[in-house]
């Protein structure tokens, strides 16, 4: 484990100031950052962890001004159980309920869930054994010629084929949520744009566009009459990251759809005609190619991820059909 300093912050502004001053990162639930600190999987690890759990009153869930407002420190368990979220932003409650395991949901926060790092098996390899493009300037993406069973089916971003592993991110994009930080208010779709120009630095490892000294304070989900749902497909039925996930917000025959686990960012489709759920699935996946590269010796690609295309089509169809 890398040595680090640990500082308790009492306000978001104080925490942001600490981030600006040092090579620092935020720790809240700690379910992701400690993992990286122990495995030393990247050369861009922080020297200081700024603990924001000590910030008071940042775990609220309330309905206010046409939004469901959720404090960044709200636990995933609380979101999954919240009656207001369940009834008025069902997709988000379902997404929170499907994150990892009860233990991790009890520790993990909504802020942390949308700020976790990629789960690519090359990125996560300890001691930076695979200095990939995300971590090192000029690095390559090992998944392209290696194992890409779990990777993007819509091509890469900045040469990286990793996927967005966050369950709640997908729901937030489909729900057209806003994300309030210490610097600005983001539209969710913009928030999850991977900063590919920063690849090779700590910022480039993020699954969102936050500055390194910017902290999520609040999630705002607009309250609408549209029905929504989140469906997840993973190899295991629990404690697993999505290989394919889908959030659908359906209003009449029009749907806002976001796919997770298939691209660097939640893949958003707006105004999809969902009168025929199967066709809607086909439409969303029309441009998906997957990765299916025969090996140099001519043998089939054992690590092809084209299966995700089929599963995603079915997931979209079934998600729409369930509403």
């Amino acid at each position: 484990m890398k040595d680090f300093a640990h500082v308790n912050a009492t306000s978001f502004d104080e925490a942001a100031a600490l981030l600006a001053k040092d090579n620092a990162a935020v720790i809240a639930g700690g379910t992701d950052i400690i993992y990286s600190m122990k495995g030393m999987n990247t050369p861009n690890l922080p020297d200081t962890l700024v603990n924001i759990k000590t910030i008071a009153d940042a775990d609220y869930i309330k309905e206010e001004g046409g939004f469901i407002k959720i404090g960044a420190l709200a636990k995933l368990t609380a979101i999954a159980k919240s009656s207001v979220v369940k009834s008025k932003a069902t997709a988000l409650a379902e997404a929170a309920e499907l994150v990892a395991s009860p233990e991790l949901r009890n520790m993990g926060t909504i802020g942390g869930n949308i700020c976790q790092k990629p789960r690519c098996i090359y990125y996560r390899n300890e001691f930076n054994n695979f200095p990939c493009a995300r971590k090192v300037k000029g690095g390559t993406c090992y998944a392209i010629t290696g194992v890409h069973r779990y990777h993007s089916i819509f091509g890469g971003v900045g040469g990286c084929m990793a996927v967005c592993p966050s369950d709640t991110a997908v729901a937030l994009v489909a729900l057209k949520a806003k994300i309030v930080t210490t610097k600005k208010t983001w539209e969710a779709a913009d928030f999850f744009k991977v900063p590919n120009k920063e690849f090779g630095t700590a910022r480039g490892e993020q699954i969102n566009a936050l500055d390194l000294d910017e902290i999520v304070k609040e999630i705002q989900v607009p309250v609408t009459s549209a029905k929504s749902t989140y469906k997840k497909w993973a190899f295991r039925k629990a404690i697993d990251f999505p290989q394919v996930s889908v959030a659908v917000v359906k209003d009449g025959n029009s749907a806002e759809i976001a796919l997770g686990g298939v691209y660097n960012e939640p893949k958003a489709f707006s105004g999809v005609n969902c009168a025929d759920p199967a066709k809607a699935g086909d439409e969303c996946l029309a441009k998906a190619t997957g990765m299916n590269t025969p090996r140099a010796d001519g043998q089939a690609d054992r690590y092809s991820n084209t299966y995700k295309i089929q599963i995603a089509k079915v997931m979209v169809k079934r998600a729409i059909g369930s509403l």
Partner: peptide
């Protein structure tokens, strides 16, 4: 890893 032979399925995930 088919290129290096490194074990890449090495964590609890």
């Amino acid at each position: 890893d088919p290129n290096t032979g490194a074990v890449i399925s090495t964590n609890y995930t």
